[in-house]
Nucleic acid binder design. Structure first.
Lengths: 208, 208
DNA sequence: GGCTGGTTCAAACGATCGTTTGAGCATACG
DNA sequence: CGTATGCTCAAACGATCGTTTGAACCAGCC
C-alpha cells in the first residue's frame, strides 16, 4: 500500500534494505520485485541488472547478515572453547547473544524472521545454501557441547540441540506471544530475553 | 513434475488430500490450483465450485485437522486436569502425544508442516483464524501449568511455555535434523520422540 | 419421455509475475 | 571534442496465476 521511498545509499544497498523488510513481511514469493523496487525507490530492472535474478538477490540478503552472525558467534566461541573452566552457560551465551544483538541493529530483527521463513520453506536450494554457510558453525558449537556434556550419547545430544534450536528460532523470530512491554527499554528486554533463552536451554540440555 | 492421480473418495475429499500434501511441500502461494487439481485428478474449476476460493480451501484444510487435534488434546487434558495427584509430565503428555499421534495417521505429518508454515507466514487473517481455533486450548493448558508451577510468576510461565511451543513446533514439523533411522520402526521412533519432547519440556518448564 | 438440480468440463478472462530490451543519460578518459 | 562505460529508465515479453463462464453430462423424479 504505502510506498516509502528510501533515498539513502547506493541503488544496490537500497534494494538489499527494502528486500530484507519485504521478504520478512510477505515471504520470498509474496514480495514482488515491483513492490520491492518501488519501496527502494529504484527502477524495476535494477534488480536484474545488479543481482542477475530474484533468486540471487535472496541469496545476497542471506549472505550479508549470515556472514556477520557467523563471525560474531565464532569469535565469541573462540574465546572460551576448550578451556578447562568453561561452562555450558558460556557456550550458550556465545551462541545466543550474537543473534540477539543482531536482532536489534538496523533491520536485523527482520532478518531473523527471514531466516525462520527459510526454515519453513522446504526449498532445497535455499536449504543447501544455508547448510553451506551455517554448517561449520553448528559443528563447532556441537563439539563444544559434547565436551561439556560427556554423559550424553551422541543421539541424545543431537536431540537436545535440535530442540534448543527450535526454541531459539521460535523466540528470536518473534513468532511467540512474548512482546516487549512499553515500559521496558529495549536493552532491558533484550537482556531479559537472553536470560530466559539461556536458562531454558541450559535446563533442556543438561537435565539428567 | 509427477502427476499422481488420486481416484478415491469424493471430489471434495480428493482436493483436500492433495491440498494438504502440496501446501506442505510448496507453501500456500507456491502450490497452484492447477498443480493441486492435477494431483487430485479433478477439474481446475472444482476448487472454486466446492470451496468458493483458494483461501477458503486453505481454511478448510486447517479446520479439518485442527478440530481433530484440539478434541484429542482437550479429551486427554480433561482426564487429568484439576486432580490432586496430576504431574507436570501428565499435562505435557496430554499436549504432546495427540500431536504425535496425528502426525502418523493419513497425511497427518504433512499437516504439522502446514501448521508450521502458517506460523512462519505472518498473514493476519490466517493467524486470527488459528487464534480462534487454538486459543481456548492453549488457555486451558496454561491454566493447568500454572496450577502445577505455582512458584513461577505469570510472565515467567508465559516465557517458558512460549519456548516449549517453539521446540515442539520445530520438532514435530520435521524441520530439525533428527530423522527416523531405517532400522527403527515408526512406532518406536514415535515413542522415542515423545519421550525426548516430554523430558526436554519438563526440564525447561520446571527448572528453578 | 421431459425436466431439474447438482456436478464436471474445456476454454477463456484479466491481473500479476520475473525477465529482457533498447534507448537515454551521465561521467571519465583519450 | 569524441567515445567508451556504467547505470537508469519506460516499455514490452511470455508465462502463470486465481477466477469465471457456459455448455455438457447425469443422476432422480414427475
Amino acid at each position: 500500500m504505502t510506498l516509502p521511498v528510501n533515498s539513502s545509499g547506493s541503488t544496490k544497498d537500497r534494494i538489499l534494505g527494502a528486500a530484507e523488510v519485504l521478504f520478512a513481511q510477505r515471504g520470498f514469493d509474496g514480495a514482488s520485485l515491483r513492490q520491492l523496487t518501488a519501496a527502494a525507490g529504484v527502477n524495476l530492472a535494477a534488480v536484474n541488472y545488479h543481482f542477475g535474478s530474484k533468486e540471487k538477490l535472496v541469496e545476497e540478503v542471506f549472505r550479508r547478515r549470515l556472514d556477520a552472525l557467523n563471525a560474531r558467534r565464532l569469535e565469541a566461541l573462540a574465546k572460551i572453547a576448550g578451556l578447562p573452566n568453561t561452562t555450558l552457560e558460556d557456550v550458550l551465551a556465545a551462541y545466543i547473544r550474537p543473534a540477539l544483538d543482531l536482532s536489534h541493529e538496523d533491520n536485523g530483527s527482520l532478518f531473523m524472521r527471514v531466516l525462520a521463513r527459510a526454515f519453513a520453506e522446504h526449498d532445497d536450494t535455499l536449504r543447501q545454501f544455508l547448510s553451506e554457510h551455517y554448517g561449520h558453525v553448528m559443528r563447532q558449537f556441537t563439539a563444544e557441547f559434547a565436551r561439556l556434556l560427556p554423559q550424553l550419547s551422541k543421539s541424545e545430544l543431537y536431540w537436545r540441540i535440535d530442540l534448543v534450536t527450535g526454541a531459539l528460532t521460535h523466540a528470536m523470530s518473534g513468532f511467540g506471544m512474548i512482546q516487549r512491554k512499553h515500559d521496558v527499554s529495549e536493552q532491558v528486554h533484550r537482556e531479559q530475553t537472553a536470560q530466559h533463552l539461556i536458562r531454558f536451554s541450559l535446563a533442556g540440555l543438561s537435565h539428567p
